[in-house]
Design a protein around this nucleic acid. Structure first.
Lengths: 245, 245
DNA sequence: AGCGTGATAAACGTCCGATGTCTCTATAGT
DNA sequence: ACTATAGAGACATCGGACGTTTATCACGCT
């Protein structure tokens, strides 16, 4: 397209962004493997031809992306680059989406979570199933506590998805089901007196998993996500109506 | 859990991270809607009790996350917060994953892309189908050009997923199918003389979509992702064997 | 009146130097 | 051998300064 990578390039790319890209490339190329230690900030800055302040901005960006781990008084290191870390930002992104796009997020969950649950039905261990049972008991006991319900709901789905053994999948779904989304769904559920029904849905999922039945797990998970989506839709629509209050 | 948000909190949270959180909260609460302009850096810094340098780091982080848009000589604004922007980082994250975790990414694609394709079969417009046909022709014509094939492959899948009308889903799958992943898959495909077979798989997907057959679309997409996964697995395994060279 | 031009001010980009504070480590003492 | 302490190294934060870019508006020309 444009004249790419001209050594005498214009100001098209800021120095800081350039430094970010260079560090990312060093990591991708294997020059900086996970756990590696980076040179001190002043030296790194000189190496890339910018001031320490600019380099600090670059490092801070990569630290917030969980690519670098800055230890005060010690040095800066490359993280493990585990998907759990690198995909952490998905949750933060979802938290900033507007109400109407949250419905899109819920549709993605409706597409992904049933499949994940059916896979979990095959891979789940007995210990995982027992943990689910415990969470389910806690859920029933806390049927009146808004906050606790959200916590147990989060734990339930996390346990199911984590049982697939796919950390990338787990991190993604955790992010898509961020606290913001769950809070809004449960607000609708409780105001609509539908908490009991939802707990029953969790029980159905549990029974399907305990039966090691992928198709049944798929179906019950789909039904459950669909319920959540419906309540989220109600909350979003209701908020528009109540905008005058 | 812990004593949360103690006003006289320790140094547990850096000033810069605190500023990032505050700005994020102002956006979440609606105090700073999309398109809003932020106060100048010095004023914002004073308001949150830190130096301009620290505030610049905070702003830079949010800019890299596509939450803020910094215009030199003008000011700093909140972006549209569209999922396409906020989920852009997924691709960057995937680019840094190691080979073995790339297989996890591919498993997520195997779970998600067939469902997305089946939905697209119902929602896709005639114009979208025509565009797919064109891409397919280009693909056949470029059967020997590594780079072009990757480009058309990307365009094909993007067009299919975008036809669902779900921008969040599209951004997510675009990120999961980052250039790095595609490049490795196609490296295996071409070295294994399997480019032709893969192009045929795209044709099958196209036919299923043209027939508006969700089940067939699901099946053909699953078959296709499975092929990609197999070749990625071969490349990863091969790299391990060739490690001595 | 309309429009282009140039001056002005505001805001971000970058740099420099200095100081505080934390962590690691090596040394010295018990 | 173990512990305590002092030193060096590294990040955290600050303050100020200057350059560059952009938006804005007054001015003058058509």
């Amino acid at each position: 397209m444009f004249g790419m990578c001209d050594p005498a390039e214009r100001d098209l790319v800021a120095l800081t962004d350039d430094a970010i890209a260079k560090i990312r490339l060093m990591i991708q190329s294997g020059e900086l493997p996970p756990g590696a230690r980076l040179p001190p900030e002043p030296q790194l800055a000189a190496q890339m031809g910018l001031s320490r302040g600019g380099m600090r901005e670059a490092v801070k960006v990569l630290e917030s992306a969980r690519v670098l781990d800055v230890r005060r008084g010690d040095g800066t290191y490359v993280t493990s680059l585990a998907p759990r870390l690198l995909l952490e930002g998905v949750g933060l992104a979802v938290d900033l989406l507007r109400d109407d796009t949250l419905l899109e997020v819920m549709e993605v969950r409706r597409m992904l979570e049933p499949v994940a649950t059916s896979v979990a039905a095959v891979r789940m261990s007995e210990a995982d199933l027992d943990e689910l049972s415990t969470i389910l008991d806690n859920m029933r006991a806390a049927a009146d506590d808004h906050e606790k319900l959200i916590g147990f709901d989060t734990a339930f789905h996390h346990t199911v998805v984590a049982a697939t053994g796919n950390e990338t999948l787990t991190s993604l779904l955790d992010g898509l089901s961020s606290r913001t989304v769950r809070a809004r769904v449960w607000r609708g559920l409780i105001e609509g007196r539908a908490a009991h029904k939802t707990i029953d849905e969790h029980h159905s999922i549990y029974l399907a998993l305990r039966s090691r039945d992928p198709l049944l797990a798929h179906a019950s998970a789909l039904l459950h996500v669909n319920t959540s989506e419906a309540w989220l839709r109600a909350v979003v629509a209701g908020r528009a109506d109540d905008a005058t209050s």
